[in-house]
Amino acid sequence: MQPFEYTANPGRVVFGSGSIKKLGDEIKRLNKSNPLLLSTPQQKDQVQALESILKDASITPAGLFSEATMHTPTHVTDKALQYTKDSGADCVVSFGGGSTIGLGKAISIRTGLEHVCIPTTYAGSEMTPILGETADGKKTTRSDPKILPGTVIYDVDFTMTLPEALSATSGVNAIAHAVEALYARAGNPVMTLFALEGIKALASSLPIIVNNPKDVDARSKAQYGAWLCAMCLGSVGMALHHKLCHTLGGSFNLPHAETHTIVLPHAIAYNAPKIPEVMKQLADVLPESDGDTIKGLNILLTKLKVKRGLKDFGMKEEDVDKAAEIAVSNPYWNPRDIEKEPLRETIRRCWAGEEARADL
């Protein structure tokens, strides 16, 4: 066995249907009493329902900031910080997906306030010490243990109304976290176990959810898989897949989960020649792969009925060259060297919506 290092990230997880009722107890456990609630404009009504739960625990929220948006733009964070200060909040509670949780992280790392997360998607940001922020059209990331939220409440009830399309892309986004953990430079056997179990859980449950979104068992399994996959991302770092997604999302304002869904099979195909053992491990946990990881991923995405081309979300063909330039300018570590022409072709295939193939 290869030598490795493993550092367990601190954090508390409360998992299960109805666990939202423990929100007040969790805030009191932190010795806090004046939480600021965070959401997107679309989830404002949902998060307001938490006020009655807090009221039952004799807790009055400091207020609700409902302007979270994707890619965590710094001008929104600045506005939220002022709101936090004016409200006198002593902790933040983020309710939603990666956009809201990202804002919670941005506030927490700047103020030192405790951060409690209530995820409603499978994006996984709640389990990582990573913050991605966008300013002047560019997205940058940083990692710091202090960014990691202290408490996460996984209540499957809040995922039951997640639209089928978003369930699919959010779930594939989670799978991407685990895939990169399998070949990460700082990988270890603990994360490999988490990654394979998480991918298996999501790959089996997501097609069920797309066809029957009210299936509670499938929803619970998907949330469990997303948690495991997020643990991987928070522990072992990122490579080409995430570099491409950060480049494309931040520079061309593309939707986060949809971009991850489109890029994933192509990024794996790019790295395939350098990760034969990982390709075998993935094939073993992907349904209908017949020993071929790329085939298994293409079949999975077909079953999930997701859009496969970045052009469907507004990216222009002339943006392909610009994206390739940005991606090679400051590359993440990757098992295969970042070569401009094969990478450009990878991005072109993502733009065009072609099925992935390992021929680069």
Rank of each mutant, 00 (worst) to 15 (best):
L360R: 15
V306M: 10
G18P: 10
E318K: 14
K243H: 15
T74R: 13
I118G: 04
G250I: 02
S94L: 00
M127I: 06
V320C: 01
G250Q: 07
A356H: 03
L228A: 09
C232R: 08
L113T: 09
V116M: 06
G291Y: 07
C245F: 12
Y154S: 11
N211T: 05
A239R: 06
M127S: 10
C350V: 05
S204L: 05
D359E: 14
L81V: 06
P207K: 15
E67F: 14
P342T: 02
M231W: 00
V210N: 04
P3R: 15
M279E: 08
Q223P: 09
P129Q: 08
T111K: 08
L193H: 12
S17P: 13
V116R: 10
M70A: 13
L297M: 14
A222F: 01
T111W: 00
V263H: 06
L30C: 12
F65T: 05
H71Q: 06
D144L: 14
F158T: 12
M127Y: 12
E325C: 09
F313H: 11
E325S: 14
H242V: 01
G96K: 03
L196H: 06
D319F: 07
A267E: 01
L228S: 10
Q2M: 13
G132D: 02
D86G: 03
M238F: 02
A135N: 10
D144Y: 01
D86M: 08
A106V: 04
F313W: 11
S58W: 02
T121C: 11
E197H: 14
E26A: 10
L50T: 05
A106C: 04
T261Y: 02
L38P: 13
L343V: 01
I262F: 03
I338F: 09
T72N: 13
I175L: 08
R344H: 13
A181L: 07
M279S: 08
T111P: 04
T293M: 07
H242W: 00
P189A: 02
A123W: 02
G309S: 12
Y122N: 03
V216K: 12
E197R: 15
L103P: 13
A356Q: 03
D157R: 02
K221L: 14
A218E: 04
P342I: 00
G171W: 05
G124R: 03
T121A: 11
F65K: 12
H246A: 06
H241G: 05
K138R: 09
T7P: 02
E345K: 15
E288C: 00
W351H: 15
A324E: 04
I299Y: 02
L244Q: 15
T140K: 15
H266Y: 08
V156T: 14
A186N: 15
D290V: 02
P342W: 01
K214P: 06
E318V: 13
I27Y: 04
E126R: 13
D290H: 12
H75N: 08
V116D: 01
L81M: 11
E325H: 09
A226G: 13
D90I: 09
S58E: 13
L54F: 07
